[in-house]
Design a protein around this nucleic acid. Structure first.
Lengths: 151, 151
DNA sequence: CAGTATCCAGCTAGATACTG
DNA sequence: CAGTATCTAGCTGGATACTG
């Protein structure tokens, strides 16, 4: 066991990592978090998933592999597994196998994963809430921005 | 002019977009936001940049192209320009050209960009603050997790 | 159900060199 | 200073097919 607590470690870590630096490990971590599937998986496991059989309850609950696949429309088995494995390795997601027939596997966000959920969910909500603003900005930009070119 | 205000538009947009759906425009927007350079640029323009000549003031201020290039260590001119152009098009960043010799170009986050800043900054801070936790989780995972395989 | 394995098209993004 | 242009290695990730 370490002689310092997790809280102390985190305190010491303040300022030790900087994602702006290319060589800093936190840069790689930031890049991993900046992945659409990572974001969507975390949103789903944080309680943001909806769909047939998966209501948007708002409360985090374990989801089965197939539920995740349904929630993240368009995800391939390969990417889903790959994403889940990386999240599991990083301690953000816990994988639980139940020996039924056929086998049941559930995934749920760990405490660490949950601590990230607010931000990721915020990003997703932001994208949904400001879609129209962005669409408008694009239209204005693509139109040429100059008054003279407006009809 | 539209007959509805931006606030009303946003109100109406509630529930109209869902990034979980592959075909939803907000999914593409979410994917764009889930880009390391987008995240880092937004962090820098939100006042999170530090370095030689660029102190981490915490207050958002316009940055020049070269300041951004220095802040985002390792970014290539191509990616920086590409990222800035896409952010400009989406109305998240404003580009200002001042006719000096040589020409001075500054970028700053728009109100829309600033509204996203909290989340992105949160992600970057999270990565820095929890780097040790993730490192520990990886070590444990890679060791095999099982007590029997520990030395 | 919950993956794994394989193949490959295509996009990404870095390196590099050049310009108004 | 602030880009633009070009080339390409290689990684990403989708399609597809198969398995315990």
């Amino acid at each position: 066991m370490a002689t310092t607590t997790a809280a102390q470690q985190r305190e010491l870590a303040k300022g030790r990592y900087d994602a702006f630096l290319a060589a800093c490990p936190s840069r790689q971590l930031f890049e991993r978090l900046s992945d659409k599937w990572v974001g969507l998986v975390l949103c789903a496991l944080g309680g943001g998933a909806a769909g047939p059989g998966v209501e948007a309850s708002g409360a985090p609950r374990p989801l089965r592999y197939s539920e995740l696949a349904r929630a993240l429309a368009g995800v391939s088995p390969k990417m889903l597994t790959q994403t889940l494995r990386s999240l599991e390795r990083d301690g953000l997601v816990a994988r639980t196998v139940t020996a039924t027939v056929p086998v049941t596997v559930t995934y749920e966000a760990t405490e660490l994963g949950l601590s990230l959920h607010a931000m990721v969910r915020g990003m997703k909500s932001w994208a949904e809430d400001h879609m129209d603003d962005v669409l408008a900005a694009r239209a204005e930009h693509d139109a040429g921005d100059r008054p003279g070119s407006a009809p």
